[in-house]
Write a protein that binds this DNA or RNA. Sequence first.
DNA 1: ATTAAAACGTGATAAATGTCATATTTATAG
DNA 2: CTATAAATATGACATTTATCACGTTTTAAT
Lengths: 226, 226
Amino acid sequence: MNKCDQCIVRQLTSLQALNKEEVIKLANSKTTYKIKKGEAIFEEGEVTNGVFCVKDGVGKLSKLSANGKDQIVKLVKSGELLGQRSMISNEPANLTAKAVADMEVCFIPKSEIIGFFNTNNQFSMKLMQTVCEDLKESENDKIALVQKTVKQRLAETLLYLHDFFGENEDKTLKVQLTREELAGIIGTATESCIRLLSDFNKLGVIELIGKKIVLKDVKTLKKIAD
Amino acid sequence: MNKCDQCIVRQLTSLQALNKEEVIKLANSKTTYKIKKGEAIFEEGEVTNGVFCVKDGVGKLSKLSANGKDQIVKLVKSGELLGQRSMISNEPANLTAKAVADMEVCFIPKSEIIGFFNTNNQFSMKLMQTVCEDLKESENDKIALVQKTVKQRLAETLLYLHDFFGENEDKTLKVQLTREELAGIIGTATESCIRLLSDFNKLGVIELIGKKIVLKDVKTLKKIAD
DNA sequence: ATTAAAACGTGATAAATGTCATATTTATAG
DNA sequence: CTATAAATATGACATTTATCACGTTTTAAT
């Protein structure tokens, strides 16, 4: 079993606040899973009874609508915890978590997290802060959804993906999303998303290499996004 | 000075988890303010250094966009805390809080809240849960904004206002919002909001008595909202 | 390697919603 | 009480965006 002690990822989460003893407890209670691209970690309505610490890969939290569209609420990468909210609220999952790229996650039982929360102030504060951060993001997203056009949101999202996940050696965005997923993030129809990518390509602000995307003119993209 | 001990509102917030001693501390550190309709409790960018406990009235949390529109993120009534998120995140306010109806609020300094958070597990868990609840709501709102039409969102919002604030003796909604504010909640242009209210009126699902609104046919409204 | 399925791309069109103009009603200040 | 501003209301029109239809390309399975 891998020791959480040596896990770099832990340094990025609220788990960084744990002391030696607690980390040992954590290592003994966790279970590691490999999730392949497209597979679910948990689905809406499921009771998880714990959280998932993302060690590697990329995941999406989304909700399926009546008309079959999948609205993506949040992307997660290594160093984030999944399922905190439902666990704290004592509710089944409100969203479905799926892998966008192959993932490795560690499941941490609820009892452990609650134990840490109650005995380690630094941990509880950190955890609280991450939820607060999520809330702020969500509120700002909500505002952007209403106040910005699809074009602006696409530009904004491309910049975000670049910032958050970085680029490969060939300058293409590191996260590879389908057009449908990208549309699911900005909240639009897949066709509209494709069309606007085409426009951006013609304008020269991005370059489309197959399904991959290169941001050619960040400055103009930023201007479009405002 | 009013004692928090006797304040009914306290029973509704995370503050219910405080013990006798803590309530005395709370009562000694709090400051009560009266906020008139239209006035701000705090504005975006302001550092508040504490939270506001809403004793009476109705408030809105909103953000002004570049084009002058005010997107309302959340309505608050008695028994809710305002400004928790910014305080926990150690950031200036992300949103502006204004009174929609005359309010009475108590300011509680950050030091007190943090103290309670660190020494009272029940309190910290409750506080965490309210933030989680906010997060869930915000995520669901986000999804609704994308997946539902303006008409659906208006129906949904009217039902929400009815549920959350109740009605007067004459069956009109208790919260009195301007059409502009209502538009700010559902995220649309004021004119569109007015037009749809008119349509609902003609359909007989609501009745407009001046600026006041009566829900005449909740069942149909619910059908429209889905 | 072949075939089916999924993803991508584009045009035509329809539907939803925003914007602008302007009239009317209601609220508010002096 | 009156003047003025603000809020409500509605029409005409423009714009954005979704939907449908269809062809092409890529991916995955056998």
